[in-house]
Simulated assay, not measured.
Amino acid sequence: MTQWIDACATDDIDAEDLIRFDHGAATYAIYHAPDGQFYATAGKCTHEDVHLADGLVMDHVIECPKHNGQFDYRTGEAKRAPVCVNLKTYPVKDEGGRVFIQVA
């Protein structure tokens, strides 16, 4: 069963930034793209299990703070070594000034 989880307010995340969101046993990263869209991925790097919320966001890329691996947060695609496993992404909707993510 999938459900929409209220993760944060839209103004909690500056443009070209991200926040960490924990729900249950899972950690997510929620991004505010330069074009105003919101995206969500798994919150930890697939390479070393490091929280991405401490990483650097540039355009549509999140850079892991530990080894500088990069992902396109829109698709989860691994873009630069040492990461080679894509990030899981989650559907996002923006309603009434709130960001919701869909989780299983």
Rank of each mutant, 00 (worst) to 15 (best):
K66E: 15
P91T: 09
G55D: 02
Y73L: 11
T46P: 01
P91H: 10
H23N: 11
Q3E: 13
H51V: 05
A9R: 12
K88F: 01
F21K: 02
V61E: 13
C8R: 02
R80C: 14
G24Q: 06
H47R: 05
T89G: 10
A40E: 05
V99C: 01
D14Y: 00
G69K: 07
F38G: 03
G55L: 01
G55T: 03
E48N: 15
Q102H: 08
Q3G: 05
A78Q: 11
I101M: 09
A7Y: 03
T89V: 15
R98I: 02
P82R: 08
V99G: 02
C84P: 00
V50S: 05
Q3H: 04
G43K: 07
T27S: 15
V57T: 11
G55R: 02
K79V: 12
A42S: 14
G76Y: 07
A81Y: 13
Q37D: 15
F38R: 06
K93V: 15
H51A: 15
T46C: 04
G96Y: 02
C8A: 13
Q37H: 12
F38C: 07
V83K: 03
W4S: 05
R20Y: 02
D14T: 07
G24N: 14
K93G: 08
G24P: 08
T41K: 09
R98G: 00
Y73H: 06
A53P: 01
T75I: 10
G55C: 03
P34Q: 10
L56A: 06
D14C: 00
A81D: 14
A53T: 08
A15T: 14
T41C: 11
E77G: 05
K79D: 09
M1C: 00
D35S: 11
E48D: 15
Q70R: 15
I13V: 09
D35A: 09
A29D: 06
D54Q: 11
E77I: 08
Y28L: 06
V85R: 12
C8G: 03
